[in-house]
Amino acid sequence: MADASNRRKKVPTPPLPFEKPIFELEKQLQQLESQLDPSPATKDAVRSLRLEITRKKREVFDDLDAWQTVQVARHPDRPQTLDYLELVFDEFVELHGDRAYRDDRAMLTGFGRLSDEKVMFIGQHKGRDLQERTEHNYGMVHPEGYRKAILRMETAARFGLPIVCFIDTPGAWPGPDAEERGQAWLIAESLRDMANLDTPIVCVVIGEGGSGGALGIGIGDHIAMLQFSYYSVISPEGCAGILWKSVEHRDKAARALRFTSRDLMKLGVVDEVIPEPLGGAHRDHRAMATALKGSLIAAIKDLRQIPRDQLVDRRYEKFRRMGVFQET
């Protein structure tokens, strides 16, 4: 792995099925490189193997299908919100709790600094190992998480801080406790209130954009997606279960739903696709973080040019245009 965040797992993750040929070549390379005092022929072999690896990565990742994209988006080594808070932000001052029920650890909020841009950060976090995933509920937010996000965003608007939202959730938590505490209500209120904030809002889907749980922090002026993330009305498994009556058809559902960054660009739902390092963000956290930081700062600078009293109308028009129908 390219870098060693202290959150990295100790046991290496096995390759995804379509990554196997790349891993094979990398193993060969490792063997060659471990030779002491290599001959000129070995050095040549190392060089051509390196080129071969790059070529192979490009071949596989230029042409990922929808289901493979989902697997990359869910990869356990993929950088998550806490990784980016270390690698992208120069400072993060966490603000806990929703002042009503509890501190939802699936939704992290606080002041953040990106070079000289001060922002309010809102981000869903899934967790990597079992303990961390349990703490953060696999990124599935409860109603109090949305209440917490709304509270922070209102603070940001009052003090003119731009808002940065990182979306990474399989979906809002579908448990009985969430129903008792009004999951639908808190998501709806978040949509409504985000539409009305007179401060720039930048949203980035960094991994999974799972349905209403994702949209709940997704009403922004600039919507970006990392190249191999996905953003969907329903999970491929959920869709397959309902329409094909079996989860086995999740790859077909994934294709039908058109939810990759390329598709969403075509549908006019996202404004920017941020390219991932060759082989996916999980292969190089630092490179991904650098690209993400550049995009964030550029987007905020652009939005700062727009007078604050025009932001809300502009955001309204953006969402107002979404949808495809016929008028006869």
Binding site: L215, I219, V233
Partner: peptide, 24 residues
């Protein structure tokens, strides 16, 4: 049914659109 699967992300965005209209 909620948001209609057959229109994918565009259905999800209708949630945002209607809620934004209600905000106004």
């Amino acid at each position: 049914g909620g948001a209609r699967m057959h229109e994918g992300i565009l259905s999800l965005m209708q949630m945002g659109k209607t809620s934004a209209a209600l905000a106004r």
